[in-house]
Amino acid sequence: MKGIVIAGPTGVGKTELSIKLAKALNAEIISADSAQVYEEMNIGTAKIEEDEMQGIVHHMIDVVEPIKKYSVGDYQRKVDDILNSNEEKNVLLVGGTGLYIDSVVRGLSALPESDLAIREKLMSEDGDKLFEILKEIDPESAESIHPNNKRRVERAVEVFYQTGEKFSILSKKNIKGNNFKFLKVALERDREHLYDRINLRVEIMMQNGLLEEVRYLYEKYGDVLKKINIIGYSELISYINQELTLEDAKELIKKNSRNYAKRQFTWFKNDHEYIWYDLDKMTQDEIFSDILQRFNAL
């Protein structure tokens, strides 16, 4: 079973290429975007519209209500179910959320879900005392975790209490839930060109009714919506609450989107399995042909 990952920063141009490849390979597309799993958050997440899909089946879009917690573990389990029930089908995993992509391609660590009773007990402990416990049960973790990072210390101690195994060992054991082999490609552009595209996309989102979408969702869900902390929504909620002017909110959306793109670059560049294609130096047809050739040889 084979698939293709198409990764890259926000606004780079993943959607158009993914549709073209999906049509050529008779493939289905699985979104790897941590914002697009939320229902009703359409404009601000640049969610693909039905006519843009061109008949290609898309998964992992509109999965949960904005008020629901959704973890990378939830995402991994759902995508593995999709893959394991469609093993004869080619798939494209498309998006910019590196953690989501890695959970499918490499699997997640074998760490257990948090135990609230244990966590509450640990939260009540003095931080210095907790770090001394960590040094006794898992000196490797104590070497890598700063004593002031109490939440991380709590988690490492909690995992040991839950499993009897060291956090430093379990956190490096990944469990993969599917048998797919993925060709990993990533798209990039000249940095200034990408930032121009991001700025323009924010302007288009505003023209298409992003403020009205945020106002509607904020009235429907209240402050819970702020906790998701999705770019475009958080800034406009601040405007609605008269904490920012509309112009300042819009400029902040652009700035935060650009900073997010930088973080995405860093994440994907640190993974040397990716084959990079520069959309400012190659035509889409050239990239398309090269990916197909590499996929067929996989």
Rank of each mutant, 00 (worst) to 15 (best):
K2Y: 13
K2G: 06
V12T: 08
E16A: 09
E16D: 03
L17V: 10
L21G: 13
K23I: 14
A24K: 15
A27L: 03
A27K: 01
S31P: 02
S31T: 12
A32H: 09
A35C: 02
Q36I: 02
V37M: 13
V37W: 14
Y38L: 13
E39M: 15
N42S: 08
T45S: 13
T45V: 08
K47D: 08
K47M: 13
E49R: 15
E49A: 11
D51Y: 15
Q54F: 00
V57F: 10
H58W: 15
M60Y: 10
I61E: 03
D62I: 02
V63G: 00
P66V: 03
G73H: 12
G73N: 12
D74F: 05
R77Q: 13
K78A: 04
N84R: 09
N84P: 03
S85H: 11
E88M: 10
V94I: 15
G95K: 06
G95L: 11
G96Y: 00
T97F: 10
T97V: 09
G98R: 10
Y100P: 02
I101F: 01
V104D: 01
R106T: 06
S109W: 02
A110K: 14
E113Y: 05
S114R: 15
A117L: 07
I118M: 01
I118G: 01
R119A: 04
K121H: 10
L122A: 06
L122S: 09
E125A: 11
G127Y: 01
D128V: 05
D128Q: 13
K129N: 06
E132T: 08
L134Y: 02
L134V: 04
I137E: 07
P139E: 11
P147F: 14
N148H: 10
N149L: 08
K150T: 15
R152D: 10
V153N: 05
V159P: 06
F160I: 07
E165W: 01
F167L: 04
S171V: 12
K172W: 07
K176E: 09
K176T: 06
K184E: 15
L187R: 06
R191F: 06
R191W: 01
E192R: 11
I198T: 01
L200F: 09
V202Q: 04
V202C: 05
G209F: 06
E212A: 12
L217V: 02
G222T: 10
I230Y: 05
G232T: 07
I253Y: 01
K255H: 04
N256H: 13
Y260F: 10
A261W: 00
K262Y: 07
R263G: 09
K269T: 13
I275M: 14
I275T: 14
D278F: 11
K281E: 10
K281G: 02
M282T: 07
Q293A: 03
L298T: 10
